[in-house]
């Protein structure tokens, strides 16, 4: 069935259908362009360090928890940790409360809170991100052991 052999009224209707989809796509694209950064759920550590995140407003910050950076208070539930973008920028986050089960060093998190004058994010809520890789515990253990052997017994590196 060739396009040119189509009956004219059907070809017109097919073109109208195409036009509907294309114009809707253009409208949505323009809307997303206008919303720009607002669709992102969180600011990256680099954006916060560069001052792109607003001060004195509720924002979300996301990144990987830096290994060895978790400092727990001995008297209350306060906890401080750094999140980084795995490159150079890092932001310190302070939170008081119970962290989600999946919170651990090297894991992605999203924290909602306000930046204080020292550039520390005082978080009201910490959510754990997880990645798209799933594996059984035994496989994870084998992988970790192999990695440890290869790196000369430095876990977490």
């Amino acid at each position: 069935m060739k396009f040119g052999k189509m009956k004219p009224h059907r070809r017109n209707r097919l073109m109208i259908a195409g036009l509907v989809v294309v114009s809707a796509a253009v409208a949505v694209t323009l809307a997303f362009q206008a919303l720009d950064e607002n669709i992102n759920l969180f600011y990256s550590p680099a954006q916060i360090v560069n001052g792109e995140a607003p001060q004195d407003a509720l924002i979300r910050a996301g990144g990987m928890v830096v290994a060895g950076s978790v400092r727990r208070s001995e008297t209350d539930l306060k906890v401080q940790f750094d999140v980084s973008d795995m490159k150079e920028a890092a932001v310190t986050i302070e939170y008081e409360g119970i962290l989600p089960d999946l919170f651990r060093e090297g894991q992605g998190i999203v924290a909602r809170g306000r930046l204080n004058d020292d550039g520390i994010l005082i978080a009201e809520e910490v959510l754990a991100k997880h990645d798209e890789n799933y594996m059984p515990p035994e496989v994870a253990k084998t992988l970790a052991d192999a990695h440890e052997e290869a790196t000369g017994g430095q876990p977490g590196s």
């Binding site: 759920l41 999946l102 809520e125």
Partner: peptide
């Protein structure tokens, strides 16, 4: 149980 929230926008 995983993220710590039912819903996020």
């Amino acid at each position: 149980p995983t993220w710590g929230t039912w819903w996020v926008w």
